[in-house]
Design a binder for these strands. Structure first.
Length: 315
RNA sequence: GCCUUGGUAGCUCAGUCGGUAGAGCAAUGGACUGAAAAUCCAUGUGUCGGUGGUUCGAUUCCGCCCCAAGGCA
């Protein structure tokens, strides 16, 4: 019984979600892997609750010094959903991190069959990383081939993170990575899923470039300096975000200001394309709406659709 | 005006001791079960500045021309 709005970066999700939430007198749950970090505002295009006129969950919930994963997100978001629903309202999930959205749609264990100690998992993971640093990835991939052939065939040997993760799962839990969550069961009966698409690459490129320029005007560079002055480092998970990671080259005198800005724009475009691929291919049942049709059209169409579903008792 | 260096893929450049060419980036498509704004995979592309000559054959050697950068006047 939730409404989900997904879409690529700079598609206007946030504004649309907020207006819908206002009209339904409800709150928003963000599905964004970078807005979870506090102190990272400009580069993640955060808008405050006050400015939006709506309460947002899953924003500013962790410090940039900490790591975060999909399981943490799912737990936080499910908690927020319960809270909003307990008020008799319809939660609206808004975000561009499709992987996170999936955690609210499907019942999944994410490789964790039980409640085994996390310490064991971490120490095994560290061993695997050591092994990788010493002997490279191919040996680990061959080991995966022995332990879990299906995963090995599916995971490319160059994909270090995935190879290590698959080995980590089987070594920690004794269960094959490939045999987790095969069923893809839905975890809730009803949800409305809207995807904001853009068939016009040129328009989108302009929107993305403008957005990056606006971030700079709003003080992105100062934000980076501030984070660094607090001791945040470029190798932290939080600093892998677009608009942040690109500055490492600049601070190490390996890139110029202009090149850094261009890189942020290029990375943003790549990201938008990746999001498109995900949203287009993972949710065939979602309703796609072209953002080029204009904000008013989007708002009216989705509002009507929600209202009809409500009247039919679907929500 | 003279000298030098360069003109090769959208960009930066490599290369061909003469047999019509390649890397990186970009572009395009895709995968993704505890890092997902992460990680990974796949795919083109070219009148090799123009024009004559030598040659079985020139992007490669030679002449002339055009363009760019630097130097000398």
């Amino acid at each position: 019984m939730i409404v989900i709005i997904g879409g690529a970066t700079a598609s206007g999700k946030t504004k649309l979600g907020a207006e819908l939430a206002k009209s339904l007198n409800t709150s928003i749950i963000s599905a964004d892997s970078m807005q979870i970090y506090s102190g990272m505002d400009i580069g993640t295009a955060k808008v405050s609750d006050i400015e939006l006129g709506v309460k947002q969950y899953c924003v500013d919930i962790i410090s940039p010094f900490n790591n975060f994963s999909i399981v943490n997100y799912r737990d936080e978001a499910e908690c927020a959903i319960k809270e909003i629903e307990s008020q008799g309202k319809i939660p609206i999930v808004v975000g561009g991190t499709g992987y996170y959205i999936s955690s609210l749609i499907y019942e999944r264990k994410y490789g964790r069959p039980g409640d085994n100690s996390d310490e064991l998992r971490c120490s095994i993971k560290e061993e695997l990383i050591d092994e990788y640093n010493k002997n490279g990835i191919f040996k680990l991939w061959k080991e995966l081939e022995q332990l879990d052939l299906k995963s090995a065939l599916k995971i490319h040997p160059n994909n270090v993170k995935r190879v290590i993760r698959a080995l980590e799962v089987i070594k920690t839990y004794g269960v094959k990575y490939s045999e987790q969550d095969n069923d893809m069961q839905y975890k809730r009966d009803n949800f409305l899923f809207y995807v904001l698409t853009s068939n016009n690459r040129i328009e989108r490129t302009i929107r993305i470039n403008d957005r990056v320029d606006r971030m700079l005007e709003e003080g992105l560079y100062n934000e980076i300096n501030e984070l660094l002055s607090y001791g945040v480092e470029f190798n932290m998970q939080s600093m892998q975000g677009i608009g942040y990671k690109e500055w490492q080259q600049y601070f190490e005198n390996k890139s110029t200001w202009d090149k850094t800005i261009i890189q942020i724009k290029v990375d943003s475009k790549h990201y938008a394309k990746k999001q498109d691929t995900w949203f287009n291919n993972k949710y065939p049942y979602a309703k796609c709406i072209d953002v080029e049709l204009g904000y008013a059209y989007l708002f009216d169409t989705i509002s009507d659709d929600i209202r009809i579903n409500k009247e039919n008792g679907m929500l």
